[in-house]
Design a protein around this nucleic acid. Structure first.
Length: 485
RNA sequence: GCCUCCAUAGUCUAGCGGUCCAGGACGCCGCCCUCUCAAGGCGGAAACACGGGUUCGAGUCCCGUUGGAGGUACCA
């Protein structure tokens, strides 16, 4: 088997969206699985759509994702340059060769003319296809006009009859009738190639063995194979990947507010979780294993068992993966990652971050949810006294007030202020008084936090807050309750 | 409209003719644990789109219908 060389070829039009990330991942996996080479190529032949800075963003995202490439614009390689606009001069000779052999021809129709003719055709209800008008221009005349500086494009000359097809590792053999194919533009008026041409030339010149790309290219692949054979080249193996959807009918798109890879990282999703989730979106190892490192993915990946239908991106499942990965983080790493998020609402408050992190690690789903969860440590939020009413603990507004009055002196007497001491003091006093734990601890948590769900229980919260602050909060709560009774 | 592709629960999927009255995961619901939440333990509801074939036998093969996706640019 020849050396496996795969390529990820994004256009620099903005962020790396998740469908792109998945394509990149599978392409990378394929190369790594066969000890091949993974190449990054930038397809920037449409200069109008190019977004400044996005090339750098692609490099950065690839690194963050852990998808190292062996050849690419910023790492070099023997098949460069890897940015198509820098390869401008390599395409025209091949196009001229195709004109020579009759597989292409120059076209002098202007965009305006074409738009008009297209509009007329579709208005009649007919299917538009370029009518090969310029094909009938005698070669000598065409040559003269090209050299005279007249604006022109070069079109592929699709045979009027017969069929064209290609083989896909996933979809098998796909064959279409040539009369459904259009004479696409190969070289634009600005001299740059279209995707339709550049992908063929570059994939061949860069010795790409497997072409992986989205299914948006599935229906034009037969045309590309026509080009390969006109040039006398062997086409690569194809793997077309289904699109990633946001729901049953719409695809995921940054433009419609769906997060990009970068967005997810900023929100506090771990890269390992994103990769793991993405890998399983449209592919299954065939076993029940669901947690994979990149290394394990290389081992388990099988390009022939990819799913052929579009998959819907499920945020809940991603979040579940993230929660699991966060839980498995070494504690020190969690503390380091969580600290800036604690700071967002606890800046300036004296809180034992280490203890807080211990309480928070198993409760963190996404890092950006941390600030809201810990904000009560800085300040008790506004709350209704109804919070004191709890069925299971059998608490009411009245007996909560009584419970707090009972426990306040106990708390005032606790020394030193540490979790075990607080715990034993409270439990002892509650037991001695013949009360139920919940009857006292529930109101206490409400008084301390102003919310019914907190990371840790009353004891942990009290300890984090400190003795003075705890007492202050209980006194304040008593005032609030007194006003109600 | 035309061309191509796809079709198992709400979602991601296993299944490649009998071992499937369909397995796993997320989500959802219930119970246990418990000072809350989370975690953990136990349990539950939930799918082969439809109609024809082929076959002793079909989720699995074929055809059609329906539904969905992609394409139909001097965008990729």
């Amino acid at each position: 088997m020849q050396q496996v060389r795969t390529r990820f070829a994004p256009s620099p039009t903005g962020y790396l969206h998740l469908g792109g990330l998945r394509t990149a991942l599978y392409t990378w996996l394929l190369a790594r699985k066969y000890n091949g080479r993974f190449i990054l190529r930038i397809e920037d032949t449409d200069q109008e759509r190019e977004v400044p800075g996005s090339v750098e963003l692609i490099y950065k995202s690839m690194r963050q994702a852990g998808l190292t490439y062996d050849e690419g614009p910023d790492v070099g390689g023997d098949y460069g340059p890897y940015i198509q606009s820098q390869r401008k001069d390599t395409y025209l000779p091949y196009a001229l060769q195709l004109i020579e052999s009759g597989h292409a021809y120059p076209c002098f129709c202007t965009k305006e003319e074409l738009d008009k003719r297209r509009a007329e055709t579709t208005q009649r209800g007919d299917t538009w296809k370029y009518d090969k008008k310029c094909l009938s221009i005698p070669k000598e005349e065409a040559k003269r006009r090209m050299e005279s500086g007249e604006s022109y494009v070069i079109r592929q000359n699709i045979p009027a009859t017969g069929t064209a097809g290609f083989d896909d590792i996933l979809y098998g053999h796909v064959e279409v009738s040539c009369d459904t194919l259009d004479d696409n533009v190969l070289i634009k008026a600005d001299g740059l190639p279209t995707y339709n041409f550049a992908n063929v030339i570059d994939d061949h010149l860069m010795a790409i063995s497997h072409v992986t790309r989205g299914t948006e290219y599935l229906s034009s692949a037969p045309k590309y194979n026509l080009l390969y054979s006109a040039l006398g080249w062997t086409p690569p193996l194809y793997i077309h990947l289904p699109v990633v959807m946001k729901d049953a009918t719409r695809k995921l798109s940054k433009r419609h507010g769906d997060p990009s890879f970068e967005d997810l990282l900023e929100m506090g999703y771990l890269r390992e979780a994103i990769i793991n989730f993405i890998a399983l979106l449209g592919w299954s190892p065939g076993t029940d294993q669901e947690f994979f490192t990149l290394e394990e993915l290389i081992e388990a990946f099988d390009e022939t068992t990819l799913n052929k239908s579009p998959a819907i991106f499920n945020m809940d499942k991603l979040t579940w993966f993230n929660t699991e990965y966060i839980r498995r983080l070494p504690f020190e790493e969690y503390l380091e990652l969580a600290t800036p998020w604690f700071d967002k609402t606890l800046q300036g408050v004296e809180i034992d971050y280490k203890r807080l992190a211990e309480l928070m690690q198993s409760r963190t789903e996404v890092f950006n949810r941390i600030p809201d969860m810990v904000a009560f440590l800085k300040e008790v939020p506004e709350y209704e006294v109804g919070l004191y009413i709890n069925k299971r603990s059998k608490t009411t507004v009245e007996n909560s007030k009584e419970a707090l009055e009972f426990i306040l002196p106990v708390i005032e007497g606790i020394e030193p202020w540490s979790e075990p001491v607080i715990h034993d003091a409270l439990m002892g006093a509650i037991a001695d008084s013949g009360r139920k734990n919940g009857a006292v601890l529930w109101p206490l948590r409400i008084a301390l936090s102003g919310q019914q769900s907190t990371p840790g229980g009353a004891v942990e919260i009290a300890c984090l807050l400190g003795k003075e602050e705890s007492i202050l909060r209980i006194q304040k709560a008593l005032k609030k309750l007194a006003a109600e009774v």
